[in-house]
Write a protein that binds this DNA or RNA. Structure first.
Lengths: 263, 263
DNA sequence: TATAAAGGTGAATCCGCAC
DNA sequence: AGTGCGGATTCACCTTTAT
């Protein structure tokens, strides 16, 4: 099995090629199935650039459930018994994803709340500002108790207090956000590196293999490399793979070299 | 339909007695101690003895799902078209509950995170401190857009900035926590009044009817009375009803009388 | 050069009514 | 059900332009 590589292809089909019990961590950022229909305007009459990508469209709940059941089934097979899996989502999809994971035998360890510093407000005053996304963190099953969790390291990272399941992190904006030739965002849902840093620091050791079945522009790979972990990415869109390869090639293994190892 | 009353009986059976389109708000805090304490509920809310093998584990999920499908179906029937429903849970159950609500046609407006000031630490250092519970807030369906939401009031309540979906509230402790004759907590999952205050303030008007199918010690009723709303509670355990009646009788309608009305 | 003002933007299921 | 239009509605952070 090749490591530090990006596989171009269909997520479920490519997962099926990977061997049993072979990766230490899985981070998955699947399509959320947002179901946006109308154009939303800000109070100053500019348009909100919503997620209208084809990869986020599903015909029905049943189709979305079947898709998630398929890729999550493969993920559970591929995961080592000492490994864990993270899946991120919003209220649009995370309840379905979480229920499917339970049905497949995954054992939930935490539901981590990404509490955004700077969420987009609700412009019409019709709801509360949607300020979070949710990460479900699971072991392979109730009986698999010897999973990696770097408790002391995360406590140190958190000012010597036990880290909680609420992570206050800003959106991926500014210099970190990859831009296309037109100056627009290159990917509609790029995640902040701080989020992946916490995921990888807390639940892998140096040299471990991290699998990301929805690699996108490669945030998981970039952070894995910085932290001296290995990565395997699967991504369908060639344009994202090009961006990710270039990004990761330019990454240095510099992330606070000495500090971030569990004692 | 009687208001400001507590109905003793089985949740699903008593919900079935209530008329269509008759309540303005539902707040539900269903049981969620599935695997944790090996207590499971059948669809008729009777307890199931805990079991450990894989087949029965799946059967247990199925029975919990059937139970939730039953009471949530009744809730949707009873709810006015202008009403909304809140359901609170933890990672043990909220994914199943959320998926069922979507399947029944409820339309999620927000997933609100109760971010606890003072959560119990993870003593073994095997997970992150579980610092949240989740509230799913839904309208009756995608097509029902004229639900009550007191946006300006919540903005005022929140220091003149739009309230977000993260609510920082402490656990119910101290004087607020009801104690039994033995000095121990009278109910294992009593919710803080601040939580219910935000729920009721944001999504009802004075004089509205609030239904709580899992009334417990009556936090919903007590806060509803303080805020000049009406309540209907359903509770199976007579000992909790006694506590709740006494509690609500001693409540005064004093909660910042003039201030908390949407302009 | 420094500071201030103006403009852009983020995984968004964001309205109500008349015709 | 679709279309069109009046009217109410926003927070943090980054970039660009102006003073």
């Amino acid at each position: 099995m090749d490591i530090n590589t990006i596989i171009q292809g269909n997520c479920i089909e490519e997962l099926a090629q990977l061997p049993d019990n072979s990766v230490d961590l899985i981070f998955a950022d699947p399509p959320y199935n947002m179901q946006l229909e109308n154009v939303l305007y800000r109070p100053n009459n500019t348009k909100v650039d919503g997620v209208d990508d084809e990869w986020d469209k599903f015909a029905s709940f049943a189709e979305y459930d079947a898709f998630c059941t398929a890729w999550l089934t493969e993920c559970r097979r591929i995961l080592k018994n000492t490994g864990t899996i993270w899946v991120i989502g919003s209220y649009h999809n995370i309840f379905r994803v979480g229920a499917i994971m339970l049905n497949l035998g995954f054992w939930i360890l935490n539901d981590v709340t990404w509490y955004k510093n700077n969420p987009m407000p609700n412009f019409l005053g019709s709801r509360f500002t949607n300020a979070t996304e949710t990460l479900v963190w699971c072991s392979k099953g109730k009986e698999h108790k010897k999973y990696t969790f770097n408790h002391k390291l995360m406590k140190k990272y958190n000012g010597n207090k036990q880290m909680t399941s609420v992570w206050r992190i800003g959106l991926c904006i500014g210099k970190e956000r990859l831009k296309g030739a037109d100056g627009k965002k290159a990917h509609s849902t790029q995640k902040p590196e701080e989020l992946l840093k916490r995921v990888i620091l807390s639940t892998t050791k140096q040299g471990d293999i991290v699998l990301d079945p929805f690699f996108g522009t490669g945030t998981t790979g970039a952070v894995a490399k910085k932290l001296k972990r290995h990565y395997i990415g699967i991504e369908q869109e060639p344009k994202y793979i090009t961006l990710a390869r270039n990004r990761i090639d330019n990454v240095q293994e510099y992330f606070e070299e000495a500090g971030w190892v569990e004692e």
